[in-house]
Simulated scan of single mutants.
Amino acid sequence: MTLLAVERIKLFSTRSPYWCSALALALGVGITAIFAAASDGPIPLGLTQIGSGQLAIAVVLVMAALAVTTEYRFQTIRATFLAVPNRTSALVAKTVVVAFIAALLGEIVAFGSWGVAKLISPESDLAINTAAEWRHVAGIGLIYAFGAVMAVAIGILVRQSAGAIAILLVWQMLAENLIGIIPKAGVKIQAWLPFMNASHFLSMGSDSPEQGGQGVDFKLSEWGSFGYFAGIAVALLVVALVVAKRRDA
Rank of each mutant, 00 (worst) to 15 (best):
G155Y: 08
A37E: 13
V152W: 08
A191N: 01
D40T: 03
I140G: 13
M196N: 03
L45T: 14
A83P: 09
V238L: 08
F12L: 05
G28I: 11
N86Y: 04
G106N: 11
Q160N: 12
Q190I: 04
S203G: 09
A164H: 07
F35G: 03
E133H: 08
L157T: 07
A24Y: 06
I181C: 06
R87M: 00
S221F: 14
L126G: 06
L126H: 04
A93D: 00
G30I: 09
N177Q: 05
A164V: 13
I182P: 09
A22G: 07
W192P: 03
F81V: 02
A166T: 14
L3D: 04
A26G: 15
S203K: 03
E210K: 15
A198D: 04
A67Q: 13
V234N: 11
I167D: 11
E7G: 00
G224Y: 07
A153E: 12
I179V: 14
V243M: 12
L3M: 02
T130V: 09
A24N: 09
A185P: 05
A127G: 10
F35H: 12
A99T: 01
A151C: 11
G213W: 05
V96A: 00
A145S: 03
T88I: 00
A22F: 15
A233E: 08
E123G: 06
I165A: 02
G205S: 05
A175F: 15
E7D: 05
K188V: 03
